[in-house]
Design a binder for these strands. Structure first.
Lengths: 91, 91
DNA sequence: AGTGTTTACGGCGACCGTAAATATG
DNA sequence: CATATTTACGGTCGCCGTAAACACT
């Protein structure tokens, strides 16, 4: 019953898309590259879509990946807003 | 490193807010009421905010809960859209 | 060969269900 | 007393890190 588009996965995906490297994305996320690789693979497998093209050391979004990136950025921004909104209510 | 606003929690929260009963919300979510109670309590504890007022069998949103509901609905709708968008790309 | 990614494997934590305790009407 | 929620407890599954295998330049 795991939601495919989990916030953690979306963050890993968006970070990798922005940075273009598993190693550096993992560093920014305070994870290992193994964990990032797992998360992306799980996303791709469960969606049935390839999100990145691996050409050697280059990592670039596929068209499907570009679709998801737009969605992911919107969702992550909403979550950020929500957290800020609620944090302001705690006194 | 667990994101507070997890999609699962948000779904449980929004469902409970709409239905107003742990038991019935759990049924709709295909979970036990215990699981829903846990999820809501975790949300409330981690946010440091009470989201529902329990008056006997009545479960109603607090002001903070109403804030979160608006946010949660938006986020969940975005996720729904994203899934639909990506599903359309799978042939 | 060296850097980067994937895969295998083990451990730890989160989440859920069962069931007991508690509350409410 | 019956129904609903909370809490305690145990098991299972998922996620992460270590480390080995693999790929590319």
């Amino acid at each position: 019953m795991t939601p495919i588009l989990d916030s953690r996965r979306l963050l890993a995906f968006a970070t990798l898309a922005r940075i273009g490297s598993f190693t550096l994305a993992a560093k920014e996320l305070h994870l290992t590259q193994s964990a990032v690789s797992h998360a992306i693979k799980a996303l791709e497998d469960e969606l049935g879509l390839r999100l990145f093209e691996r050409r050697g050391r280059r990592v670039a979004l596929t068209p499907a990946g570009e679709h998801l990136l737009i969605r992911a950025q919107r969702i992550l921004a909403e979550m950020q807003d929500a957290r800020a909104d609620l944090a302001a209510l705690v006194q």
